[in-house]
């Protein structure tokens, strides 16, 4: 059974649709990331799931139990959801142990203490029970927040941009830590982020949100290989569109020659465009080439060339030994890869 199902959920704020007809389902013990640019409705979706706002249409169920549908609305305190906030929302007047115990009022005192100790151990903060939030580092605060959200064994964990306040240097270490804590607790989680690097590192599946809808829900690999829309493809990384004609099920032809694909291409359309990312592009010397080099930069192990092709600009890496002249036109060679073909 799915941990969470959203069916055709819509929410308008001041006559403006923030999310519309949104469908989403999260399987047991799965971490799904809602990924999208700011303003695409991902935090609103999270709030709707938590019950902090009431969607006007649609149905939300958690563990098969309906939480929001037409007149029915289960208030947040009865949903048994753990939530971790961008600013962590630690209660400044309570110490670490009290913060973690906040949601444990149903347990008796000794059980509560045991659970707090367990959580402290889980997030490796033993000995800091009596500290107040402002006496902790950012990473420690975050671990308290996750411990607090998991302490009462929620059915579902929601995380709202939890890593945005953390230094890049320790961020991925923390992401790993927290991912393993969540996996260890066997809880499904939904995670909101605008950074795909975080999402790849943290989530099992990614739900790309665009204009209040889920554009695609899939694993990272599938999203890269088979983006359903141009928006999804673009969101996952910069690239250029090239006109292309399907040659057969495994390759297309472009003005830069034939490109073979590692996955089979859809058969519906003959003509369309392919979306090519820098890592699949090789720059080659060609006096009659149609590609212009605007700029060149050395970044340690390789060069990055800023190129212009068919009125689109892109930064393309090239090995250090292959030095190209900025004044000379070049041409492209496109390596074999899982081609994103859009009709």
């Amino acid at each position: 059974m799915s941990s969470l199902v959203l069916e055709k959920v819509s929410y308008q704020y001041q006559q403006q649709a923030v999310i519309s007809q949104l469908d989403l389902s999260v399987e047991h013990n799965e971490i799904v990331c809602l990924l999208g640019a700011s303003g695409c409705g991902k935090t609103t979706t999270l709030k709707a799931i938590a019950g902090l706002i009431k969607p006007q249409q649609g149905r939300i169920s958690i563990h098969g139990q309906c939480m929001s549908h037409k007149q029915l609305f289960v208030s947040p305190q009865h949903r048994n959801i753990g939530m971790m906030f961008q600013d962590y929302a630690l209660f400044p007047h309570l110490n670490v142990a009290q913060n973690i115990a906040f949601g444990l009022s149903k347990l008796n005192k000794s059980e509560r203490n045991r659970r707090v100790a367990q959580m402290m151990e889980l997030v490796r903060l033993e000995g800091l029970e009596k500290r107040y939030p402002h006496e902790l580092s950012g990473g420690q605060q975050q671990r308290v927040a996750i411990a607090r959200a998991l302490a009462y064994r929620p059915n579902l964990l929601l995380l709202d941009e939890p890593f945005s306040n953390i230094d890049t240097q320790v961020r991925f270490q923390l992401i790993n830590d927290i991912r393993s804590i969540i996996k260890d607790q066997k809880v499904s989680a939904i995670f909101v982020s605008h950074s795909k690097d975080e999402a790849f590192a943290f989530a099992d599946k990614l739900a790309i949100m665009h204009e209040g809808r889920i554009a695609q829900l899939d694993s990272a690999k599938n999203l890269f290989q088979k983006p359903k829309t141009k928006a999804v493809a673009e969101f996952l990384g910069r690239g250029i569109y090239l006109d292309a004609t399907r040659y057969n099920g495994q390759s297309v032809t472009t003005k830069f020659g034939e490109v073979s694909s590692s996955i089979s291409l859809p058969e519906s359309e003959q003509h369309g465009q392919i979306y090519v990312r820098p890592q699949h592009i090789e720059l080659v010397n060609a006096p009659q080439g149609q590609v212009e080099i605007l700029q060149q930069r050395f970044i340690g192990t390789e060069y990055v060339y800023h190129i212009k092709v068919a009125d689109q600009q892109l930064e393309v890496p090239a090995p250090a030994e292959q030095l190209l002249d900025t004044n000379q036109p070049v041409s492209l060679k496109i390596k074999a890869h899982a081609v994103n073909f859009f009709s």
């Binding site: 902090l52 305190q77 048994n80 949601g103 607090r148």
Partner: peptide, 9 residues
């Protein structure tokens, strides 16, 4: 929100 999500009315 944190308080509500932790079951407090």
């Amino acid at each position: 929100m944190a308080s509500q999500s932790m079951g407090k009315n």
